[in-house]
Nucleic acid binder design. Structure first.
Length: 192
DNA sequence: GAGAAGATCTCCT
DNA sequence: GGAGATCTTCTCA
């Protein structure tokens, strides 16, 4: 089993967001192993992207986005929700990929408990939902996605590019037109 | 220190 | 389809 590492993530954010589709997110918890296939992502840049947290430069919250690739960036939003990102680009260049939706594969009973949600189709089909299902919160920000970490991404066989749909990002108020959202075509677990 | 906005979700109509 | 919940973070004075 091969894990994606810094050499995968330290490339252009758009490429990383595109190629992450189809790989497996794995999270080791005290209660067991949680796994899910990544079916939806969004790319966020730095200075050239008004929708990105990194647009106005470094702040205490977004500092990890400017650091080395392959780390997690988790932030709290709307008073209720955490969102999971993976830092991309070379050190010093801001960039991150937001994981928007997963297809649950393993540990579904535990996800049900975390989410208090019976329906598997509504378990992880949104950025706030998947972090709740996996039990990911701000304390998991800045984690390294290396093999020694409890959170990592397992490489899956490559998809054909035609299987991946490219659309504008959603849920943002600025730079809405850029085609930076990627999802697995015809997958039931995509958020919208 | 105050005010406003926000990479969302859920419930209600 | 629409609005409220809820609180962190950032900006500006």
């Amino acid at each position: 089993m091969k894990y994606l590492d810094g050499s995968f993530f330290s490339r252009h954010t758009r490429i990383v967001a595109f190629e992450l589709i189809g790989h497996e997110l794995v999270f080791e918890t005290l209660g067991g192993l949680l796994t899910g296939k990544i079916v939806e992502t969004e790319a966020y840049f730095g200075a050239n992207d008004p929708a990105s947290h990194a647009y106005r430069g470094v702040t205490p919250r977004n500092r990890v986005m400017f650091g080395p690739a392959g780390k997690t960036y988790v932030y709290f939003t709307y008073g209720n929700h955490y969102c999971l990102n993976i830092v991309t680009e070379k050190e010093g260049v801001a960039g991150a990929v937001l994981i928007r939706a997963l297809e649950p594969l393993g540990g579904i009973d535990m996800m049900r408990k975390n989410r208090r949600q019976i329906n598997v189709n509504h378990m992880t089909n949104g950025p706030g939902k998947l972090t709740q299902a996996f039990g990911i919160s701000r304390e998991h920000s800045g984690m390294d996605l290396n093999t020694g970490s409890s959170l990592r991404i397992v490489e899956s066989p490559s998809l054909e590019p035609v299987q991946i749909e490219v659309t504008p990002r959603i849920g943002i108020s600025r730079a809405k037109k850029k085609l930076l959202r990627f999802c697995l075509k015809d997958n039931a677990f995509v958020s919208r």
